[in-house]
């Protein structure tokens, strides 16, 4: 699976990484998304009812934890991380509203078309994520 992300995701990722209380976020992303089959990734709430390109909201790190929004293009085996936020703590937020869900959805389409994306890769030790601008 090729993993990409929007600028929105990268911004949130860096904010969370800089906060001690959220330092498990990067590991959560690595263990949930990297090295997984598309079948394993088809879990969570499917927001768009699409069979080919499910738009998914996934709860990470169990109770409390984080919420991650991503799109899977199953035929191309491409995954696009769109947005993430913690549920609790100083940067915690409740559910994002429908307008924001629709905004992110439209934005991922625009970014795919214009190739305005980052590719995510693991470093040599597989313990941190590198963002490569396309």
């Amino acid at each position: 699976m090729n993993i990409y992300c929007l600028e929105d995701f990268k911004v949130e990722f860096e904010k969370l990484k800089s906060k001690k209380s959220y330092n498990s976020f990067e590991q959560e992303i690595i263990s949930y998304f990297f090295g997984k089959t598309k079948e394993e990734l088809c879990s969570g709430t499917r927001l768009n009812l699409s069979e080919d390109a499910p738009y998914i909201k996934k709860r990470l790190k169990g109770r409390g934890g984080f919420r991650c929004y991503f799109l899977l293009i199953l035929k191309g085996e491409n995954l696009y991380l769109m947005y993430a936020h913690p549920k609790t703590g100083s940067m915690g937020a409740s559910n994002i509203d429908d307008k924001s869900k629709a905004y992110l959805y439209k934005k991922v389409l625009t970014c795919i078309k214009s190739n305005d994306l980052y590719q995510l890769e693991l470093n040599d030790t597989s313990k941190s994520i590198k963002f490569i601008k396309l």
């Binding site: 927001l47 768009n48 009812l49 699409s50 080919d52 390109a53 799109l71 293009i73 035929k75 191309g76 429908d98 869900k101 629709a102 959805y105 439209k106 389409l109 795919i112």
Partner: peptide
């Protein structure tokens, strides 16, 4: 969400992306 025209249009267009 299925009542939002933008959302439906995005789903249509994404089904064409490979």
């Amino acid at each position: 969400l299925p009542e939002m025209p933008d959302f439906i249009e995005t789903t249509k267009q994404l089904s064409l992306v490979r």
